[in-house]
């Protein structure tokens, strides 16, 4: 799959979000989209998934079917988990049995639960399930670890490996540093409307450190200067 001179802006007079982006991913490849909040990572993912059309340029050799996991699953719909996934499965010619992914993602207890009654993490699992049911050849994951429990977070790299092993392409964005669990992934760094394709990423570990609040900015600057990737600076402890 190749993005050839792709540019995008929202509306005819909107500011350009992405300009002249040319990157590619081979079959069986995994791409990790990196960048600060608001630089256009989600826009890039939606262009790749075919949700948005490029304002200029084109995307060639996009494999199908496409599975897209949005950053926030739209839970405000009058369906149960099973009813929704069954309805989504019917949109595709070839799918895995719905119950396969309900069981695998730990949704069995929520089969008859209405989408609106789900917690954010469980709704995110439904979003993951609907993308995986059609056996995607292109899987686009927008912050897939957000809100997931520990067991489901472990499952994401496993699923990515299964899709790529079958010759599919996976593109993931993440600001939690979880993509360090995807060794062999190619990085696409989004900044100032451009995308820079990096080398194959090495496996990374995430170290959480606590410093006095007054020293947070200085410590983050020191770490960046030392070549580390500072994922987040929080002023409140998260238990």
């Amino acid at each position: 799959m190749r993005l050839d001179g792709v540019s995008y802006r929202y509306g005819r007079r909107g500011a350009w979000v992405l300009r002249d982006v040319s990157v590619d991913l081979p079959p069986g490849g995994t791409g990790v989209v990196l960048g600060r909040n608001g630089v256009g990572k989600s826009t890039l993912l939606q262009l790749v998934a075919g949700v948005l059309r490029p304002s200029a340029g084109e995307i060639r050799e996009r494999p199908g079917p496409v599975g897209w996991v949005p950053e926030r699953f739209p839970a405000d719909q009058p369906f149960t988990v099973h009813g929704y996934l069954t309805a989504m499965a019917r949109l595709h010619p070839m799918t895995d049995p719905v119950d396969t992914w309900i069981d695998r993602l730990g949704l069995t207890a929520y089969r008859r639960t209405r989408l609106g009654d789900l917690s954010k993490g469980t709704a995110q699992k439904v979003g993951l399930a609907q993308a995986l049911i059609p056996r995607p050849k292109l899987l686009v994951l927008d912050e897939p670890w957000e809100g997931l429990d520990a067991a489901a977070r472990e499952l994401v790299p496993e699923i990515v490996e299964e899709v790529t092993a079958a010759g599919g392409i996976v593109l993931v964005s993440d600001h939690r540093g979880e993509t360090g669990r995807l060794p062999g992934a190619i990085t696409w760094t989004v900044a100032d409307g451009t995308v820079t394709q990096g080398d194959v990423a090495q496996a990374h570990a995430v170290i959480e450190i606590a410093v006095p609040a007054a020293e947070a900015e200085a410590t983050a600057a020191d770490l960046r200067a030392a070549g580390h990737d500072v994922i987040a600076v929080r002023t409140k402890a998260v238990v």
């Binding site: 998934a49 075919g50 599975g67 949005p70 739209p74 405000d76």
Partner: peptide, 16 residues
């Protein structure tokens, strides 16, 4: 009726 994101999911499933 459909949330905007669900409409986009439908686009990925069946095409625009």
């Amino acid at each position: 009726t459909e949330p905007d994101v669900q409409r986009r999911l439908a686009v990925t499933a069946v095409g625009p």
